[in-house]
Design a protein around this nucleic acid. Structure first.
Lengths: 343, 343
DNA sequence: TGTTAGCACTCGTCGGGCGAGAGTGCTAAC
DNA sequence: GTTAGCACTCTCGCCCGACGAGTGCTAACA
């Protein structure tokens, strides 16, 4: 079901044009503007096929075509131009980011500002942080044969809990024993201090229940990450208003709302992923507010311990190529600045 | 030119109604809704007079009346109801502000959030800060017979200058002498350290030029405040979108832009004023972006040295009574929290 | 003299109708 | 397989008239 060369070119033209103009694009326009030596009628036939394949849609009969979510996905995966920053952009970036950096917080702010300015989208940046909350007590409680409750008390005197589904949950006595082991081994530790030897030791103590240790540790880390507050900065929220897709104020309002709430921002940034730069288009995002938006996201880390994320939010009709290149450029800068700060 | 009792009541009705509905209000509506025992025709006559007096205007012939800026000013000065917080509001406020306060920054954030939530306007809060930049050198340069240039060098090696208009500017030699006195007395000092005895001493040294000392000191303090960076928090920017007066996205955009720029925010907060709570309506504000808005502003201080501001931005059609009462309530809370933190 | 009813008038809004324009799908010919 | 041509669809902007809210003025009334 691969696209023919011509279909590819037509799809590319449609997406590029739509990214620029936000207007549905018709066969005649393509024929004229992109001069590919075929008539508009032929293009119409191809467009009809592209629509059948799900790459483009019509807002209404007898209007031009608009890329669909699948179309954008294909674009990002297979035909996005690999732009690099223009010299002006790089210089601006250097100037903005290295200007007066004397602490991480400031760098994060500047990063967010730079991202928003260069892309004209909305930037979210989370601070890399060192996890510091200490575990005090861990207790597991059986719920049913597959589920247990994990309860944790931290040195900040907060109690957190989370249900946990296991292939087969041990019974009360066993859980109690395991809870004791966990408390003994982890009490007083931050999650940074849970290292390989410690894990190996616990695996041994867990004996035949070793297989449930990692899910439990994962949950504990999650709870603490939740507890540690990570600062999040945004910039360029107002850029949203410039896009015709947000002319309806209520849509914009929902996004502004989210941008003001730390929890919402953290949810948007989500868990760090393995990939370098991730592009999440429209409803690929599970967060409802962003169903009309795309999110471009990257993570960075310092010595694999402390990680932060940077992301861009824009309409699904984003200039993905440019946004990705700016994000990459900034990522480079962050890394070098952080390295410099570390010394 | 005092208003008759009846005119007063009619104006009050118009303003209260308009604050609620954002719709021009006609004579019949007043007659029906506010049952003041006179016919709509009479009200029409009175409204015509109120319009001549400048308190209300018509968006177009044959539409209802809308309060003018002068009308709002009169309302705020003379007829604003003195509301106090509802018990729910006070409790919410207590909960929000005292919840988990362990540092000033967090309190500021929470204050901004609370203000925005309770009023549904946009809140700006600046952190109280200890001025720390030290003066190194002060030099005054004559420009013409009324104006001098004040140039200051600080220990952070930045040079700042500002024109200053005086009733009669001394000539070059005098200014030079006075500059020397200023530099001698102020060098190495922060603005916190400019106290009464020091000022008295300088007044003596200034001799017959004593009267220009205070404006000069004012300018110096201004320049340093400018230099010291003060953190500013905002909350509820998205509330702006809910007002029909900002249905035109471009207006909203300008405000969002300002809310994202620290310098703009500081300009909005402006210099601390003597008054407790200030209401600045529409074009009374010199900042262009806010010409369609009103600003309610208050300052607070710790031992008269370190001051911060809190402010609310809304459409000129604001519920001034409520906003002022919330601001007052929050001010109280800030003061007590700060006092507690101090110990 | 102040108040009111009545009336003519103004102006913005809303909905319907209409033409222009953009774009499509289909058909038939090349 | 490609293209010209054509009928058709749908949106958009425009005009127009009806409607309603509201006014100012006048004349009558207490």
């Amino acid at each position: 079901m691969a696209l023919s060369d011509r279909q590819f070119k037509i799809l590319e033209a449609i997406i590029n044009d739509y990214i620029k103009t936000a207007e549905p694009i018709g066969s005649r326009t393509i024929a004229k503007k992109y001069a590919m030596g075929i008539s508009s009628a032929t293009i119409r036939n191809e467009m009809s096929d592209l629509e059948d394949l799900g790459f483009i849609t019509q807002p209404h009969t007898s209007s031009g075509r608009v890329p669909s979510q699948k179309g954008y996905r294909f674009y990002v995966d297979s035909m996005m131009p690999h732009k690099s920053l223009t010299p002006e952009e790089s210089m601006l970036l250097q100037r903005m980011i290295f200007n007066n950096i004397y602490q991480v917080e400031q760098m994060m702010r500047q990063t967010a500002t730079a991202l928003a300015r260069l892309t004209r989208y909305t930037a979210i940046v989370s601070e890399p942080y060192l996890k510091k909350t200490r575990i005090k007590h861990v207790q597991m409680i059986p719920v049913d044969d597959k589920t247990i409750f994990l309860v944790m008390v931290t040195d900040t005197k907060s109690v957190k809990n989370q249900p946990l589904t296991l292939p087969a949950a041990p019974d009360y006595d066993v859980l109690n024993g395991l809870s004791n082991i966990l408390t003994q081994q982890l009490s007083g530790k931050t999650i940074r201090e849970i290292d390989r030897p410690l894990i190996d030791e616990m695996l041994k103590s867990f004996g035949r229940h070793a297989h449930i240790l990692m899910p439990i540790l994962g949950a504990i880390v999650g709870l603490i990450q939740d507890e540690d507050d990570m600062r999040v900065f945004t910039s360029g929220a107002k850029n949203i208003l410039a896009f015709p897709e947000f002319a309806d104020i209520r849509k914009a309002e929902a996004i502004f709302q989210a941008l003001e709430e730390r929890d919402a921002l953290i949810a948007i940034l989500g868990q760090p992923q393995a990939e370098d730069i991730q592009v999440i288009i429209g409803t690929e995002n599970t967060i409802d507010i962003l169903k009309d938006c795309s999110l471009i996201k990257a993570n960075y880390s310092i010595d694999n311990q402390s990680t932060g994320s940077i992301a861009l939010i824009g309409p699904t009709r984003m200039d993905y190529g440019h946004a990705v290149s700016v994000l990459q450029g900034i990522l480079q800068n962050i890394k070098s600045v952080l390295a410099a700060l570390d010394n």
